[in-house]
C-alpha cells in the first residue's frame, strides 16, 4: 500500500502520517531525507525526533538513492520528505540533475519491498512568485513528482489545518 500526503508547510502532514502508522509496532522505519545542514534543519530534525519519540520508529537517514536502504520483509516506511529528497537528487556538486524518473523508479522499488509506504510531500507552487531559474526548475520537478507519485499511490491525502482531505482512494482503517 502506498499513501501520499501533501499540503503546505506546517499543516500537520507529519503528525497525520505518523498516526496512519500508529498501530504498527514492528519493522517501522522513518526514512529521513533532510540533510542536517544549518540551524533551521537542526531545529526541524529535533522537532520531528521529539514527535516520533516512543512511537517505535527506526530512523534511517538517506539523502539520495533511497533504493539503497536495507529493509526486512513486511516493513512499513514513512518517507519524509519528498521536498528534501528532490532537492538532494537535483542539486549535487554545482550540477543540476533531472530527478523525477530516478525518484519514481526508487519509489516503485520501495513500494514493492514494503507492506506500507507513506510519503510526505509538499505543495510549493501556489505563491505566484518568479524565483531564480534553478528554483523554478525545482518547483516544476516537485509538481511532476507529486503528479507521478499520486498516479501510483493507492491513497492521496491533502492536509489542511491538520485535517486530512482524501483526494484519491481511502484512508486505511
Amino acid at each position: 500500500m502506498m499513501i501520499l500526503i501533501t499540503g503546505g508547510s506546517k499543516c500537520g502532514k507529519s503528525s497525520f502520517a505518523e498516526k496512519l502508522l500508529q498501530n504498527i509496532s514492528e519493522n517501522k522505519y522513518y526514512l529521513a531525507t533532510m540533510k542536517p545542514f544549518g540551524e533551521d534543519a537542526h531545529q526541524a530534525i529535533t522537532r520531528h525526533q521529539e514527535m516520533r519519540r516512543n512511537k517505535n520508529f527506526i530512523t534511517i537517514e538517506q539523502y539520495t538513492d533511497i533504493d539503497k536502504i536495507n529493509l526486512p520483509e513486511h516493513s512499513a516506511v514513512l518517507l519524509e520528505c519528498m521536498g528534501n529528497l528532490c532537492a538532494n537528487e537535483m542539486f549535487q556538486e554545482d550540477k543540476i540533475f533531472y530527478p523525477v524518473e530516478k525518484i519514481i523508479k526508487n519509489l516503485n522499488f520501495l513500494h514493492a519491498m514494503t507492506d506500507m509506504l507513506v510519503i510526505v510531500t509538499n505543495e510549493v507552487g501556489m505563491d505566484g512568485i518568479s524565483y531564480s531559474a534553478e528554483t523554478m526548475q525545482y518547483i516544476s520537478a516537485m509538481a511532476e513528482l507529486n503528479q507521478k507519485t499520486a498516479q501510483i499511490a493507492d491513497t492521496v491525502i491533502e492536509c489542511v489545518c491538520g485535517i486530512p482531505l482524501v483526494i484519491k482512494g481511502e484512508i486505511p482503517c
Binding site: 503546505g8 505543495e123 507552487g125 501556489m126 505563491d127 505566484g128 512568485i129
Partner: peptide, 22 residues
C-alpha cells in the same frame, strides 16, 4: 488559472495588485 495567493503578501505594490486581481 494558477493558484498564486498561497504565499507571503509581496512588498512590491504591483505584485500585490496582481494577486488581488487574480
Amino acid at each position: 488559472t494558477n493558484e498564486i495567493g498561497c504565499g507571503i503578501i509581496p512588498l512590491e505594490k504591483s505584485e500585490r495588485f496582481w494577486r488581488e486581481a487574480c
